[in-house]
Design a binder for these strands. Structure first.
Length: 915
RNA sequence: GCGGAUAUGGUGUAAUUGGUAGCCACGUCAGACUUAGGAUCUGAUGCCGAAGGGCGUGGGGGUUCGAGUCCCUUUAUCCGCACCA
């Protein structure tokens, strides 16, 4: 009987479904293991071969863990709210719910074909009201809490209200948008609307009037991680900065904890580094500079600096054009110039601003500040090189030691005073944080690092500022002027946002017919009659922030996750997904989880213990070369002889870069009568690595591979391609090698006539050695997530076994391979007479004793090269080994009379013998 | 500019973690079986050389008896952040 993967795979997939093989429940008797994939957004294009890469890896790991006796939670679901479905709806008028449903069905069909061990009874969809009830619930909790920095924990906002009523802002250290100061009397005198407005300054989910990323083309605001180089990540449309009233999440409150938490996580260093960069902690000082206001009053301008040591070199100050005080600071003489400049900056898009970072621009406000240390009167400028969103939006400029300040000073002819030795300020600023201080009074002669410390102390002593830590991380803008997302459980009384009661959840997304903004530019929900709730909806990351918790207890309508389920499954042991979520989903999830942890709803502060980023699979495009003006195509090697035009050709009709001529003629009508100039009787195509996309005809559909070779071949081949973490072009060349391997594996159980053979003969020591070497290698490799090498180990093993028909060898080998090729393993397992699924077997243990009768090799260096090897039994201990060969005499005898010129012994071991 | 990663045959990769570089495959070549082969099987295949032999892990230097692996330096590519004060 030949290896009929079609029948085998069909049969076992049905059988798994029928038996509920992959359904899991809490089982306190067994240790848990939670293997999670980043759930997909079900797009209309379906899966290509790149998508399952991570799923296959995690599936192998999940199956392996299960075979090792763990109770494995391995769920799957859909991240179903989001922009593409809605964009499609706007274009076609089809409701996103309908297209999403269709796409999910297609995804499911494709996923099923590959033979994953998902527990589908736990499927979640973020657009399902029963699911997003808990997204809304978490939002309400954030709305009802603030972050107490003294306790480093989220606390009920009611505590804050009580405190305000008794003591005002006295002794409050809370994460907030702006530092407020008021007394209990002032608080008590506030109207309800005023109090509400004040509380938004502290809530973890809050409304604020801030600068946001506005994307006119998408008609919505976007979070920072959804914008790259001034363009929207989705769609690539221009994004502008605009002041708008939006909902935000105070993720900055958790900046330090998110930073600290990274150390204990088993994530790749590069991913942790991306998050560290994104959080962007910098230590410095807050300092106040006295400012002479044009109206004659004095104010204190707050700045942030990481280089307080250079304060004697401050010769001017710069504020952002958006700075609150800009109007007050501008003198009548400068008013026109300043207003013009503000107008000019407003017009420049984010993209232009980024592109023109080298261009120096700015304007003098007319006002002066006093350098608190040198006592000099210094001018205050406004310039867009100072960002409103970072620090306080104002800086002290030290042109001698900051390249941007230097360029600015040069452009406007301002003083440049060096305060650190080491540079040549006539050429450039000296930015390095080392050297001796000069021109700096009490700091003179001190090293920069010491000077910084001394300055911190001095600033605090004089009461003009204090040490401060600043973060680059911004609060996450949480509302989208869109339809296809979770509605906010918020209704308005005038301008006061009132949360819905928990019992009113879920607040369901009402149906609409038109998905675009209204004529007044309001979000689509404004069209819904009697919709008295918030018009915006939540962003994509809302639904994906806690889905891993929901999988633990997906049908619970009393809680996001029950205490019992949470305490059993705890958190994700292994998370597999793309690195593109480093600053989005992976930040928000950690924030969300820490918040729920503070409130006692979850028992682990970090959601994902170990994380593996699978590489991207790029496309490998193929080209044919048409002779210009003809319908004649010339093979790659001969194209230089003609004037040709390069045309993408469907990679599915090319094999090993050789074009299937008939298939090409059938591919498109205009090629029906194509002629070819061949080399060696074949048409060789050119190739290039490009993004996998329809327009380049390089999309390889997994269904196509499954149909041709079977799911097990696809699974193994994707693993064999190289390390999971690595990005690589998809190359179907070579898939035959894996397919051949599976056929050889099949043939281990069949004789030359294809008859099933399995006997109970004793295995030879050599066979046992082969088996156990493979067990050791594969176990190690799976633990290390090195699947390409474990596939290679299987291949070697099968090559070595030849025609082995022994149960003693084949049974463990079948279990060993079942995570990689579950269908064929299952079939063979049942043919061996097992009634239970191979998934219920135990993974074979490595037994060293089978290697004992064999030998290992002890290398000796001769003439600087390893030339001579002696084999010793593995059972030999290090001491015996030493006694045997380590002495010079032994070595000499061992070399059989050859006269060594030199024997080099290091720490009692011969490491080199020179003859 | 700052930070992270990678570099090995024609190709994808491997290397017991400092010990014979190139495992396992793809591709190529040769052979067998075939009416036929995009089937199957066997063998060869890093480069140079007729051979002995020499060279060889992006380049240069170093440590070591010994380096793909450790250190310094340099180049190239990829990724993240970026007027972040």
């Amino acid at each position: 009987m030949e290896y009929d993967f079609r029948e085998i795979e069909n049969h076992w997939q049905n059988e798994w479904k029928k038996r509920g093989t992959y359904k899991v429940d809490i089982d306190p008797k067994r240790p848990k293991y939670y293997v999670l994939d980043m759930f997909p957004y079900p797009s209309g294009a379906g899966l290509h071969v790149g998508h399952p890469l991570g799923y296959i890896a995690s599936d192998i790991y999940a199956r392996y863990k299960r075979l090792c006796g763990y109770n494995v939670l391995h769920p799957m679901g859909y991240d179903a709210f989001g922009l593409p479905a809605e964009q499609y709806a706007i274009q076609t008028g089809q409701h996103p719910a309908v297209t999403t449903e269709q796409n999910i069905a297609r995804y499911r069909e494709q996923l099923d074909k590959i033979g994953f061990s998902f527990d589908w009874s736990r499927e979640v969809r973020t657009c399902d009201p029963a699911y997003y009830k808990w997204t809304q619930w978490a939002f309400l909790k954030m709305f009802a809490h603030y972050y107490n920095r003294t306790e480093q924990k989220a606390k009920p906002i009611t505590e804050l209200v009580e405190h305000f009523a008794k003591y005002g802002t006295e002794d409050i250290d809370a994460a907030c948008t702006t530092q407020l100061h008021f007394t209990a009397a002032e608080w008590n005198a506030m109207s309800e609307a005023e109090r509400e407005r004040t509380l938004h300054n502290y809530r973890l989910a809050f409304r604020a009037d801030t600068m946001v990323n506005w994307c006119p083309k998408l008609g919505t605001v976007l979070a920072n991680d959804e914008v790259k180089d001034g363009l929207s990540v989705r769609g690539g449309y221009p994004v502008e900065q605009k002041r708008m009233k939006q909902w935000l999440l105070r993720v900055t409150a958790y900046a330090q904890r998110m930073l600290d938490g990274l150390d204990a996580l088993d994530w790749s260093e590069s991913l942790k580094e991306i998050q560290r960069n994104w959080i962007g902690r910098s230590e410095g000082a807050q300092m106040f500079f006295d400012v002479e206001m044009p109206d004659g009053s004095m104010r204190k301008l707050e700045i942030f600096t990481t280089r307080p040591d250079t304060v004697f070199g401050v010769t001017f100050m710069v504020i952002a054009p958006e700075h609150e005080w800009i109007g007050d600071l501008t003198t009548p003489a400068q008013r026109t110039a300043v207003e013009e400049y503000i107008e000019q900056t407003k017009k420049r898009s984010e993209r232009e601003r980024i592109a023109e970072t080298k261009r120096v621009s700015g304007v003098f406000t007319g006002s002066y500040a006093i350098n608190p240390f040198s006592g000099k009167r210094i001018p205050i400028y406004a310039s867009d090189y100072v960002l409103a969103g970072y620090g306080t939006g104002a800086i002290m400029a030290v042109p001698a030691h900051d390249s941007r300040d230097y360029a600015f000073a040069r452009h406007f002819g301002l003083d440049i005073v060096p305060v650190v030795e080491g540079g040549d300020i006539s050429q450039a600023s000296y930015d390095a944080k080392s050297g001796a201080m000069i021109n700096s009074d009490f700091l003179d002669g001190k090293d920069v690092k010491e000077a910084i410390k001394l300055m911190f102390a001095e600033v605090e002593r004089r009461g003009i500022g204090k040490r401060l830590v600043n973060y680059r991380l911004r609060d996450a803008i949480f509302s989208r002027q869109r339809y296809w997302g979770e509605p906010f459980p918020i209704r308005y009384e005038g301008d006061i946002a009132r949360p819905l009661a928990e019992s009113e959840l879920p607040l369901c997304l009402p149906p609409v017919k038109d998905f675009g903004p209204t004529e007044q530019g309001e979000p689509p929900l404004a069209r819904v009659k009697d919709w008295k709730y918030e018009l915006s909806t939540m962003p994509g990351f809302a639904g994906s922030s806690a889905y891993y918790l929901r999988y633990m207890d997906p049908h619970n309508d009393k809680a996001l996750v029950s205490k019992e389920a949470d305490e059993y499954w705890r958190n994700v042991d292994l998370y597999v997904g793309g690195i593109e979520h480093a600053t989005g989903h992976l930040m928000y999830s950690r924030y969300w989880n820490m918040f729920l942890y503070d409130l006692g709803y979850v028992c682990e502060s970090e959601p994902f213990r170990k994380l593996v980023n699978q590489g991207m699979i790029q496309g490998r495009s193929n080209f044919v070369y048409r002779i210009v003006g003809t319908n004649k195509f010339v093979s790659l090697g001969l194209r230089d002889q003609y004037q040709t035009q390069e045309i993408h050709v469907d990679v599915n009709i090319v094999k090993n870069d050789i074009l299937d001529l008939d298939a090409f003629r059938k591919w498109r009508p205009e090629f029906a009568d194509a002629e070819f100039v061949l080399e060696n009787g074949q048409y060789i195509c050119g190739w290039a690595v490009e993004k996998m996309s329809k327009s380049m005809y390089n999309v390889v559909n997994p269904d196509f591979i499954v149909e041709q070779y079977g799911a097990d071949t696809l699974r193994m081949y994707e693993m064999f391609l190289g390390p999971v973490e690595q990005s690589k072009p998809w190359d179907t060349n070579g898939i035959d090698g894996v397919h051949k391997f599976l056929r050889r594996f099949w043939r281990l159980f069949h004789d030359r006539n294809g008859e099933w053979v399995l006997n109970d003969d004793k295995a030879t020591p050599k066979e046992l050695k082969t088996l156990h070497r493979t067990i050791r290698k594969v176990r190690e490799d799976i633990e290390n997530f090195s699947f390409n090498t474990s596939v290679a180990a299987f291949m070697i093993c099968v090559n070595e076994l030849g025609e082995c028909h022994k149960r003693e060898i084949l049974e463990p080998l079948t279990v060993l391979i079942s995570p990689f090729a579950p269908h064929i393993a299952e079939q063979l397992w049942s043919m061996m007479g097992h009634t239970e699924s191979v998934c219920d077997a135990r993974y074979p243990e490595f037994d060293e004793t089978h290697l004992v009768e064999n030998t290992f090799e002890y290398p000796v260096m001769i003439n600087g090269k390893l030339r001579f090897k002696q084999e010793y039994p593995l059972s030999m201990t290090a001491a015996e080994l030493q006694a045997d060969i380590v002495t010079k005499e032994e070595a000499q005898k061992w070399l059989e009379g050859a006269q060594p010129k030199k024997i080099i012994v290091v720490q009692g071991k011969i490491i080199n013998i020179v003859k």
